[in-house]
Design a protein around this nucleic acid. Sequence first.
DNA 1: TTTCGGCACTCAACAAGTCAGGGTGCTAAA
DNA 2: TTTAGCACCCTGACTTGTTGAGTGCCGAAA
Lengths: 346, 346
Amino acid sequence: MHRVNQELNERSRQLLKLLVERYITDGQPVGSAALSRDKSLGVSPATIRHVMADLENLGLIHSPHTSAGRIPTNKGYRFFVDSLLTVQQPEQKLLKQLKINVGQQQGRSQVIASASQLLSGITHLAGVVSLPKREAASFRQIEFMPLSKSRVLVILVTNDGEVHNKVIQTTREFTSAELQCATNYLNSLFGGQSLRQVKTIIAQEMSETRQQMNQMMIDAINLAHQGVSDDLQLDDLVLSGATNLMDFQELSDISNIRHLFDAFSQKQDIIQLLDRCMQAEGVQIFIGDESGYQVFGDCSLVTAPYTVDNETVGVLGVIGPTRMAYDRVIPMVDITAKFLGEALKS
Amino acid sequence: MHRVNQELNERSRQLLKLLVERYITDGQPVGSAALSRDKSLGVSPATIRHVMADLENLGLIHSPHTSAGRIPTNKGYRFFVDSLLTVQQPEQKLLKQLKINVGQQQGRSQVIASASQLLSGITHLAGVVSLPKREAASFRQIEFMPLSKSRVLVILVTNDGEVHNKVIQTTREFTSAELQCATNYLNSLFGGQSLRQVKTIIAQEMSETRQQMNQMMIDAINLAHQGVSDDLQLDDLVLSGATNLMDFQELSDISNIRHLFDAFSQKQDIIQLLDRCMQAEGVQIFIGDESGYQVFGDCSLVTAPYTVDNETVGVLGVIGPTRMAYDRVIPMVDITAKFLGEALKS
DNA sequence: TTTCGGCACTCAACAAGTCAGGGTGCTAAA
DNA sequence: TTTAGCACCCTGACTTGTTGAGTGCCGAAA
């Protein structure tokens, strides 16, 4: 990519930029004449054809058939997004509306659902938000509730107001009093820590010499260990406006759509993909099959992680055709991530 | 419909039956010659055309254009399903497999998900299962957990092993001891009753003269009232294999599909529709727009309620094109409902 | 009265042909 | 290096003709 960057002079870059922008708005292969009509280049179609030939050799554009205009390749899009794109500041009005809408929701899942919906509504693409990592939440309270002889319901409340339930098997029967003791002990031990810290504390306690621990404490730690371990904690995501994607001609092949929706209901792949985006700092973009998943052949994914108290807890973004208005979508995703983070703080 | 039934002689009925069956398997408009080739009628194409003309006058079939064969109208399908259909007993092997697969799952949601998936897998249509009505579950245990000054987490465990959480606002702060008392009182009062009964009990207690109740009991009932009231108890459903529907040519118009999937993600309409089916006794069928929803223009819905301990708690079914193999689908839906009911009992 | 063969007619689907429009690459001149 | 000119290419839309499946109607036979 760097090579490409060097080999391209200013005019070629400008031309590529125009071409991609043009194709994004029109959806038609763009020819030399059309570009020449744009005053900002001021050269004849013939010259443009020369430049286009170069760009084609570099693999940035290609023509679907002999006598059609050119369209960007994935590589072309990539270069465009990385080096040529001038992002569009979203309208102030829209931002205010977005902020209010996300902020007004109450309850974690409400906030997230609304973020996803707004994202898809504004961009007319599919919006997706990964649920906040449970590990990042902080411990507020734990409680045990005996169900039967050897089964105990563990209730874990985190600071974001979420309640997690889990039924665990115990080796022996516990009395209410015992469970109450464990509750008190654990609540004082873990209060205010993040779940990640809680886990490490548990691990430590379990491995350390148990000299200074009495039986009650050992039991309590054991219970907590089982209750907090998230064996089944499958990540999840909220997807909105998937049907928006059906409106795009370039995806309108029924088998394309089918595969896409299969992936959506599968969720697994998307979750993995989003997980990868959590590592990144800011907005991240996958163009076409860059994601490594065949299904996204003609799709791009624009994501941004969202943070609560300076810790990245999840990702959000949009899925749309490769030919999407990156200049408007990117800042939108970026800002929505910020709003979501803020809304989750309270 | 009764009129139609009387006006049709045996031969016409037989002919209509053949025609519908033929169309269901082939998907092509069926003409007089094709039907005549079927030995079981033993009349010439010309005669068949006469009968067909009658059927067309009755609105049971129609031809898409002058020189094509005939296809059933919705009214034709309806008559076919009501009076002509001979259902196909499903294979023993399939049944066994189905039973095992549904039965082996553990956890209510697992069982339901698997029923939905199997339904869609076997029929190659979309499978749908409404979640069991919460009201039908029976009370096992209630617990209160103080969160803050005026907020209490209510945990309700039902006999099917489900745990329901709800955060309620209280008028004053309760001590742990007070909450413990309330817990004990309520558990002994409600133990083993269905949630519906619990609600009526609560209503009674609240309206009755509170002479013989002490403050603790009043508080407890109040807490329970808030905790059990399901203001937000939006029904839900599990949908599987929706993408199967994309494979059908008759639905493959992109805008059709889009509306359908919009309805799926909306859920609201489908839930209402299913709710209506819960009243019915056995298998119920909506053909085309009989459901009253435009979206299902070219779709049919085959449903059956499922029961736990002789009480109907939910509905399940499949959604597919009007042109579906009713003879195989209907018994399949029927039997799956039975298996699901059984599986939920344990 | 019902059934049937014959016949003219209709229409969709397909194939083949035509044509204009938009585009390209090459070449030679500025 | 840029440009105009030119030959050529390809698609898509339109026309035309043909084929085959299917119909409705009529008059004769049962």
